[in-house]
Nucleic acid binder design. Structure first.
Length: 301
DNA sequence: ACCGAGGTCCACTCAAGGTG
DNA sequence: CACCTTGAGTGGACCTCGGT
């Protein structure tokens, strides 16, 4: 009943990062039988006995839950959903409102709110095409634009995305590349989180700024600059603390940057495969880069 | 510390289509 | 044909950051 869930903002390219969020998913009695479903006036009582702690929690929001325009048969239920089972199966997930090319697999059965959409299955090739620079180029021209240069990946658009047919060699190669890319992305996510955690514990940085959150773009000096900025310049860093920062940079962040570099090369290879499958000529590929929209997932080599 | 601008994200609501 | 279920779209709320 209590499921881990993702928001649009938790999705990164190749790998999503679950942020310890949980969703209480109580299905509507209109299409799912629960202990209380046919208990009429006693339903609330039965629910409260069946799930006392959830009941106590929801009770705090009773009025607001009752006034929802969308809800299940009972006030503690969600509105009905035709595809509950699909959440638990392997899927390709993507944010509906998006500024970047961010598609990835979820095989952990994560639930989502409606800022995340998904396609059933774990087709590697589909993921390769979805994340490709050429698809971002195409989407920029064909998908609905929302506020602030966002693209809206609504159903109507996504179902019409043209997917080229790959040869079996291309299929095999792309799978290999994607597996490695997912692996690297996961490692880079973990590294970033570990360092941010360390900064929190050792340097009292509870709210890292944008630059610290994209750790891998920093060099040794800019890391120190940002740490000082966020802590407030009045809190001096000791010589030992400075040394620790520099050491951590060379033992953890520098190697991670190497990995990021490898990922970039893999990305280029994968992009080439996708372009090839579309049968793009060198002139067309050149045109794509010359007319590239903002925030292409890669830059021309 | 405050403020405004800009960036990011989601809650809310409408309505199509199904059902009895 | 009235009601209900589910699909779908979007504008405003919230957050961050840089400048003063």
């Amino acid at each position: 009943m209590i499921k881990p869930y993702l928001r649009g903002q938790d999705i990164n390219r190749w790998k999503a990062q679950w942020n310890d969020l949980w969703m209480i998913t109580i299905k509507s009695s209109s299409d799912y039988k629960s202990e209380w479903s046919d208990k009429g006036d006693l339903a609330e009582k039965v629910f409260s006995y069946s799930y006392p702690s959830v009941y106590q929690h929801l009770l705090k929001y009773r009025d607001r839950l009752i006034s929802r325009s969308d809800q299940g048969t009972f006030w503690w239920e969600l509105r009905s959903c035709a595809y509950w089972n699909s959440f638990e199966k392997p899927k390709i997930i993507f944010p509906e409102i998006t500024w970047r090319s961010q598609w990835c697999f979820d095989t952990e059965g994560l639930y989502t709110n409606n800022t995340v959409y998904f396609l059933q299955g774990n087709e590697y090739w589909l993921l390769a095409v979805a994340n490709s620079p050429v698809n971002w180029w195409y989407s920029w021209r064909k998908a609905i634009h929302g506020k602030d240069e966002a693209l809206r990946f609504i159903k109507k658009y996504v179902l019409k995305m043209p997917i080229p047919i790959p040869t079996s060699e291309v299929l095999l190669k792309s799978k290999e590349l994607i597996d490695r890319l997912i692996n690297i992305s996961q490692k880079l996510n973990t590294t970033t989180n570990t360092i941010l955690d360390w900064l929190c514990v050792e340097f009292e940085i509870t709210k890292p700024n944008q630059k610290l959150r994209s750790l891998l773009d920093l060099n040794s000096d800019s890391l120190i600059t940002e740490v000082r900025k966020v802590r407030g310049k009045k809190k001096l860093l000791s010589a030992a603390a400075l040394k620790a920062l520099r050491e951590e940079y060379s033992t953890t962040i520098a190697p991670a940057k190497e990995l990021a570099l490898e990922a970039l090369q893999l990305e280029h290879q994968l992009s080439d495969l996708v372009n090839q499958a579309y049968g793009l000529t060198p002139e067309e590929i050149d045109l794509m880069w010359k007319t590239a929209p903002p925030r292409m997932p890669l830059h021309r080599e």
